[in-house]
Design a protein around this nucleic acid. Sequence first.
DNA 1: ATTGAAACGGATCTAGC
DNA 2: GCTAGATCCGTTTCAAT
Lengths: 167, 167
Amino acid sequence: MQKDSDIGLAELAEAAGATTSSCWRRLDELRKTGVIQRSVAVIDPAALGLTVNVFVQVTLEKQNEAALRAFQNRIARRPEVMECYLMSGDADYLLRVVVEDLAQYHRFVVDHLTTIPGVANLRSSFALDQVKYTTALPTAHLRGSEAVGDPAPRRKPPRGSARRKTE
Amino acid sequence: MQKDSDIGLAELAEAAGATTSSCWRRLDELRKTGVIQRSVAVIDPAALGLTVNVFVQVTLEKQNEAALRAFQNRIARRPEVMECYLMSGDADYLLRVVVEDLAQYHRFVVDHLTTIPGVANLRSSFALDQVKYTTALPTAHLRGSEAVGDPAPRRKPPRGSARRKTE
DNA sequence: ATTGAAACGGATCTAGC
DNA sequence: GCTAGATCCGTTTCAAT
């Protein structure tokens, strides 16, 4: 399980009871199959002053393809939007927005959210505290190589061409 | 900005227009001050069959300290709960739960959520699609060494206190 | 063919200018 | 501050089962 990716595969192998080679092989396969997409640094939001989490339920006037695409495109460019889900039920979208304070959130709503064409209604809910936040998915079972659908159509290099990006 | 932590600080330095050493020094300080908490591997949920995202609004019977603590403790142990927020407004908590299918979600609700004492009401909203998900916080500005409102940023560590895990 | 282990190379980290 | 060198670790290759 990868909750800390910088532990080095020596300790990882020891923890898994395997050797470093088999461990690296497993990791390489997981990366090539796209199960492991990338490694990121987890930043403390409070250290950046980003203490306010807002959940916004967005309702669009029309739910046709063009409207959805337009909304998603605009949302994708906004860094304060951490997550965006197309929802069933009352609202069309659910957003988690992280900002420094309410003034900044207000600016985000006025300057960016409401300027998106087709946005009919907004319902904002404010989080008082982030009780839990994890990036570690529930790994009930990690199968050897096969996943579910077809996650990543990655090519299989013949041999010895695992260059990352340094040439 | 750290969206990919495995890019190596050579490219990072080039991108920042600095040298690798100053870049490393900056990173080390960010890690020691706790701004960078850890590095994690981002897993593709679909590759694990975890295609269902459910948002649950939880209302407790009473909102006293003990009830909140009890709920949060139980939630913290559940791996399928990715996020949990103490909310203002209609519900007390908002959870994002990731599962393989609705049957698994049902089991989670019956076996774990409703067994928590003090849970009065649940309102589940299902996500049809995860439009955006990022761990990269909006880094509007990363100041030199200190982050938030700290008026005395002149800290110079005495040069020999960089022990992370190597002893 | 699969797996372990050891050598290589490159990157991180440290010390010096 | 930048540069150069030492050390560690990821990656590859190879040998043994």
